[in-house]
């Protein structure tokens, strides 16, 4: 009896505080547009929250966050962005790649936009320059797009005898063309041929692997692309299935059983996006916040998979690896 009373009191108090919080007009609202589902994005979201906390904001306590999830359907991003912007949020956070940033920027909102992407925001036309990004948009770039040629180099080093290497490209990605262009020029330097294969849907992944397995190319380099990055497990499974060495941008891939990855540290980039969102909420102007480039580009290799594939990393690759999975 007494316990029930206490419980009732507690729930009443909780309801009261919740309603009080809901009524609190001062709590700012962040609109968070995510290209994927909460499950796939969990590690990134945690990093974002950590950054927010460093800037002094905790969701539910002094900031509210409204989420929109595209669940991997990148075509829906512009519509979801418009929906989010219509809710008059204080800051729109566009993490997970150039398509998200472009979708939010495309709404023409005057709210501040904080992006997180792997590409070059200047080249993509998202910002005017790194130190002076523009009126209402700034963010963090993880350099993942810039280092696509390094992935080709690493694959070439693993397979020095290979004359043709496959490159998987998502043709819907805004950075696809520039990456392919850079890869071609790198291939020329390295003296290899490229076999460019397109995949923009999960169903097309298998055909990429089966094509490579059936042809002369025996290693796949994945271009930087969020769609690929968030499907690391599937890619790793396929790579094992077809016994193909592959490299992607994110550490999720070798952790899931893929061979190796080379790309910007997403924990750092999402955390910094969180810090920037917090600073804007505190009243700083986005124009005063230069675009940050992530300093850490990490190489992660999986020796177990290498053994499974019958490949061996050179000593210089192993010594340069930030993480070695054994």
């Amino acid at each position: 009896m007494r316990r029930r009373d206490v419980l009732m009191l507690m729930s009443a108090a909780a309801a009261w505080t919740t309603s009080a919080r809901a009524q609190k007009p001062s709590m700012p609202v962040i609109g968070y547009l995510c290209p994927e589902s909460p499950e796939l994005f969990g590690s990134r979201l945690r990093a974002f929250h950590q950054g927010l906390r460093e800037a002094g904001f905790v969701e539910g306590r002094n900031v509210a966050i409204e989420y929109e999830w595209a669940h991997g359907q990148y075509a829906r991003l512009p519509a979801l962005a418009a929906e989010l912007v219509a809710r008059n949020v204080d800051v729109v956070v566009a993490p997970g790649g150039a398509p998200v940033a472009l979708a939010v920027k495309g709404t023409g909102t005057t709210s501040t936009i904080i992006f997180e992407m792997g590409g070059d925001p200047v080249q993509l036309g998202v910002v005017d320059s790194l130190p002076r990004p523009g009126a209402n948009i700034t963010g963090v770039s993880s350099l993942s797009v810039d280092v696509s040629p390094k992935r080709l180099e690493l694959m070439h080093e693993l397979l020095p005898a290979a004359t043709t290497l496959a490159v998987a490209v998502n043709p819907t990605s805004p950075t696809a063309n520039s990456q392919v262009q850079k890869l071609h020029s790198a291939a020329e330097t390295l003296g290899v041929q490229l076999r460019v294969l397109n995949a923009s849907k999960e169903e097309e992944f298998e055909s990429v692997f089966s094509t490579v397995a059936g042809e002369a190319a025996n290693g796949i380099v994945f271009t930087s692309d969020p769609y690929f990055a968030f499907r690391s497990r599937r890619l790793a499974d396929l790579a094992i299935k077809y016994g193909l060495p592959a490299i992607t941008q994110t550490r999720d891939f070798p952790i899931a059983g893929g061979l190796m990855s080379y790309g910007g540290d997403f924990v750092q980039s999402h955390r910094r996006a969180g810090i920037y969102a917090g600073r804007v909420l505190k009243g700083e102007k986005p124009a005063d916040l230069p675009v940050q480039l992530v300093t850490k580009v990490e190489l992660v290799i999986n020796l177990k998979t290498a053994k499974l594939l019958g490949r061996e990393f050179s000593a210089s690759v192993i010594s340069g690896a930030d993480e070695v999975i054994e």
Binding site: K296, L299, S316, V317, S319, A321
Partner: peptide
């Protein structure tokens, strides 16, 4: 190898 290691050690 030394150079690669140094790159890793000195961010």
């Amino acid at each position: 190898t030394d150079a690669q290691r140094l790159l890793r050690q000195a961010p």
